[in-house]
Amino acid sequence: MSLLKVDGVTSGYGDMEVLHTVSLEVGPQEIVTIIGPNGAGKSTLMKTIFGLLAPSVGTIRFNEQNITGLSPDRIVRLGMAYVPQVENIFPSLTVQENLEMGAFIRTDDFSDRIDEIYSLFPVLRRRRTQRVGKMSGGERQMVAMGRALMLDPTLILLDEPSAALAPKLAMEIFERITAINETGVAILIVEQNAKESLRLSTRGYVLAAGSNRFTDTGRSLLENEEIGRLYLGG
């Protein structure tokens, strides 16, 4: 049984078709990476899955439920969370307030959840009263992931979590992603930093010019010479 099943989806912006009959699956507790060159439609796929764009053809199922055409605020209630590549935090709010906003639709006491997220990102606990707008790129990314985790999602979509981060910080973000995954959350990542991401992925998809090219386990994709030459920079 798959947690997320994207089946033959065609999508884009207005009349401009970016994705052509793309299919993809994420199983429970899997880490799946989508790699591909710039303009391959990776972010478009994320936005389509999360309901920010409506597919013209195809279906998207989450937990066996058809979510094609549902709005993001409905999808977030079903247990999927999305961390956009940019502008993924509320800059004038503190770390703590960003996390509280992540729990906006929760009516129960979520202080334990905040505590769990601080255990996952200890640096955020120390800085919980600081405004996020003044924090570093790596810390912002942690706040963004923490916010997305507040609703106990079963699947998180991460759009280029290591983009614009120094290598050392990127490594730390990937470590945190593994730690999140170990708490039972499935993760779908779009990455430029494809090697690192594939290394920790169960499976990977190669997307090019808006279509599926290859799919295999993360390890096999890393070891595939042709993929390496074409998409992983040699």
């Binding site: 999360f50 920010l52 993001p72 605020d73 977030v76 209630r77 999305y82 956009p84 502008e87 993924n88 935090i89 509320f90 906003m101 992540g102 906006f104 639709i105 916010r147 609703l151």
Partner: peptide, 9 residues
Amino acid sequence: ALARVTGIN
């Protein structure tokens, strides 16, 4: 936009 995807009403 982020407020909407976060589930804020």
